[in-house]
């Protein structure tokens, strides 16, 4: 009989403690961010989708070696290049040299797993992570990023 009543009493007490805790929380400030109206800044190392890095001329640093393409586990990078002849002054005389120029750098973000293998594998520091995370669309095609175009847009 004593156990019966003590259980009732202790039970009621534990319930009251719980109510006290939630009551205290009731008056604390909110911790959430009203998302579409207010966005938070991502940390420095945040790994968004990749982005090409430009050199001083505003051209992509990428030399189209294809390392990132090979490192990618999901095969979501596809790039193309063409050889462009250009003239360079070597020891006082002009020589024509061939150089690969990036013509296409597509990222299929739908399969990208944001692992960062491409950035790590790049020996030229030509790709980096963006800080973008507001990515939502009804259209699958919106996630096929043409990174070259994005670079141009950024420059202009």
């Amino acid at each position: 009989m004593g156990a019966y009543f003590s259980e009732i009493f202790l039970g009621l007490k534990s319930l009251a403690i719980g109510l006290g805790i939630t009551f205290k929380e009731f008056f604390k400030p909110v911790v959430t961010v009203p998302y579409p109206f207010e966005t938070i800044k991502m940390s420095e190392r945040y790994r968004g989708h990749i982005e090409l890095i430009e050199d001083e001329d505003g051209k992509p640093k990428c030399v189209a070696c294809g390392m990132c393409q090979r490192a990618c586990p999901s095969g979501c990078i596809s790039l193309a290049s063409k050889s462009v002849a250009y003239e360079v002054e070597v020891k006082g005389e002009m020589k024509t040299k061939k150089k690969k120029v990036l013509t296409k750098y597509d990222l299929n973000f739908t399969t990208c797993s944001l692992c960062g293998q491409c950035v790590e594998s790049c020996g030229f520091g030509a790709v980096t992570f963006s800080k973008e995370y507001n990515l939502a669309s009804f259209n699958k095609e919106d996630f096929h990023f043409d990174l070259l175009k994005r670079l141009e847009e950024r420059n202009s």
């Binding site: 939630t22 929380e25 009731f26 008056f27 604390k28 400030p29 909110v30 911790v31 959430t32 009203p34």
Partner: peptide
């Protein structure tokens, strides 16, 4: 709203 306050979020407030 009450649940939101208890859980430290605003609840429907737009």
């Amino acid at each position: 709203r009450g649940a939101g306050r208890i859980q430290r979020r605003p609840g429907p407030n737009v």
